[in-house]
């Protein structure tokens, strides 16, 4: 077993997923899924709830193993990496959790400093300057002494973003970054994602449902449903591609390829009208 695979012919892809198959609790989440994420771009992954968008991010970070298929990040096959090499790869990946996942024992400053303290031997003055630099970038230098419990949802997400970029990663994965944000906070997060991508060239992957927000910043959208990519393309035109999946998802239709009813037995029989079922 080797820890890496030969560089792909198309080196412009930072993440390359081939034949991904995942079964959880007897339910097929992904079935032979193929997906490429280009370097330096903002890619959005959309789809109905429960289709495995967060699971896909967990595959990319190596938190979850697939039943079949290959996930290659920056030329490294994630499933074949040793623990040390996987951790080394993760140092180059930032992850923004939906609920921010700030360490509740530490204040804002220490949360952002945490990765630096764990992985470097930098002098305290340098750590301080780096943390203040990142906090300034997300507009929260003045909140450095606050505890996570004192932050609003939008502020917590910006602190988590500052922590995610503290090592200037090559890739940032955003798990539903706009959920629960008011329009002001949403625009602040949007602006930050765009700025990080444009100024630092960080590859960004967004899992989100907000098409209006995605249209403003993403360069490519994947629509996932039924364990596969059912549509992909430019976020400005994908909603008009005419497929029943895009029509239902972007049109917000209650019923369609994604059924309104969760799979169940015969309704009449469940109500006790056994004869009516026939």
């Amino acid at each position: 077993m080797t820890d890496s695979v030969p560089a792909t012919p198309d080196d412009s892809m930072l993440v390359r997923i081939r034949g991904l198959t995942t079964v959880l609790g007897g339910k097929t989440i992904f079935s032979d899924l193929d997906l490429d994420i280009p370097r330096g771009k903002i890619t959005a992954i959309m789809g109905p709830s429960g289709t495995g968008k967060t699971t896909l991010l967990k595959h990319i970070t190596g938190q979850m193993r697939a039943d079949a298929g290959e996930i290659v990040v920056d030329g490294l096959n994630v499933a074949e990496l040793s623990r040390e090499k996987l951790y080394k790869l993760r140092e180059g990946i930032g992850y923004l959790f939906q609920n921010s996942a700030l360490l509740t024992d530490f204040d804002v400053f220490e949360n952002v400093a945490f990765p630096l303290r764990q992985h470097t031997q930098l002098p305290e003055v340098l750590i301080r300057n780096l943390v203040l630099l990142k906090l300034q970038a997300v507009g929260l230098r003045g909140a450095a002494a606050l505890m996570p419990s004192e932050l609003s949802g939008g502020m917590a997400r910006r602190v988590a973003l500052a922590r995610a970029i503290v090592f200037d990663p090559m890739l940032i994965l955003y798990d539903e970054p706009f959920v629960g944000l008011d329009p002001v906070a949403l625009n602040q997060v949007l602006k930050l994602i765009r700025t990080l991508n444009q100024t630092l060239g960080i590859t960004s992957v967004l899992v989100a449902h907000e098409l209006a927000a995605i249209r403003q910043i993403a360069q490519h959208v994947f629509l996932i449903a039924n364990g596969k990519v059912v549509a992909q393309g430019d976020p400005k035109t994908i909603a008009d591609d005419g497929s029943p999946w895009t029509r239902q998802f972007f049109g917000g239709e209650a019923d369609g390829p994604v059924p309104f009813q969760y799979p169940a037995g015969d309704y009449a029989q469940a109500l006790g009208f056994a004869g009516a079922a026939k």
Binding site: T61, Y87, Y95, N99, T104, R163
Partner: peptide, 11 residues
């Protein structure tokens, strides 16, 4: 609150 997962992802 995903703090354990966050640590894993911060290596």
């Amino acid at each position: 609150t995903d703090q354990i997962d966050a640590m894993e992802l911060m290596a």
